[in-house]
Amino acid sequence: MEKVTLRNDAVRYGTFLGIVAIVFAVAGMFWQSGWLSLLSLAVYVTLLYIFTKRHAARYDAAEGCSYGRCLKFILFMALFEGILAGAYQIVAVNWLFEARYEEIMAQTLAAVEATGIYTRDQIQLVGEMATRMTHSPIWVIASGIFGSLIKGLFFGLFVSAFASRKPEVFSRNNE
């Protein structure tokens, strides 16, 4: 059995999760649907389970893979997913889909203005701040990582329970 490395598996699988998240982000920008969001969530949780189960299976039967070790692996995967998703967000906002993001921002601010709760100056100030933050690489990467870690932690609490593997008492390595 090859040596189990948390970092190599987390980078490989986290990158794949990041690519899947990017595909769903692009699709969600053009086809806003509740079904697409639900499909994205189902794919994310399924991949999280498959990758964690695959990583847990690489440990020795005598050693097993504990709940905490699985959760740690999920958090490392989420870290790399967040870095990749944040990098995509920077490229998308600044170069690929700049006009689309400005259109979405204008629609959002118009909807907030239609509520009548805020003044025009307040909405303009919020719009300027939001534009600065979406064009700031540090904020985008940090928010991508933070969001992925929160999502990974929440779903990881459940996935780790099903993907963990207890040590086998009568395995050959225990003799």
Rank of each mutant, 00 (worst) to 15 (best):
L36Y: 05
D9L: 04
E113D: 08
E128Y: 13
S136C: 08
G64K: 02
S143K: 10
T15A: 13
T15G: 12
T119N: 07
Y59S: 07
G68I: 08
C65P: 13
R165I: 08
G68W: 04
E98S: 08
A163C: 06
F158K: 03
R7H: 02
R54S: 14
F154M: 10
F30V: 00
G68R: 08
M1E: 02
E2Q: 10
A161Y: 13
T46G: 15
E128Q: 14
S136L: 04
A25W: 02
V112E: 12
G64Q: 04
F97L: 04
G64C: 08
R7K: 03
A56F: 07
P137N: 06
A99H: 08
P167T: 10
L153M: 14
A114V: 00
W31I: 06
I22S: 10
W139G: 03
I22Y: 08
R69N: 12
K166V: 12
E175A: 13
S143E: 10
L79R: 03
I145V: 15
L125C: 00
Y44N: 13
L36E: 06
R172C: 07
L39S: 12
K72L: 12
L48C: 12
T46A: 15
E102G: 09
V23T: 01
V140D: 03
A85P: 00
P137I: 05
D121S: 06
L38G: 15
T108M: 11
N174T: 13
T52F: 07
A161L: 14
A106G: 06
H55L: 03
P137H: 04
R165S: 06
G82R: 02
I90H: 06
V26L: 10
T134C: 07
K3E: 01
F80N: 04
Q122Y: 06
A142P: 03
F158R: 02
G34H: 10
F154T: 10
H55S: 08
P137R: 07
F170R: 15
W31Q: 10
S33Q: 09
Y101D: 01
I22F: 07
Q107M: 09
S164W: 01
T52H: 09
A21Q: 11
A78K: 01
Y118V: 05
G127H: 09
A142Y: 01
L6E: 00
G82V: 02
A21M: 09
T115Q: 15
R120P: 00
K72Y: 02
I145Y: 05
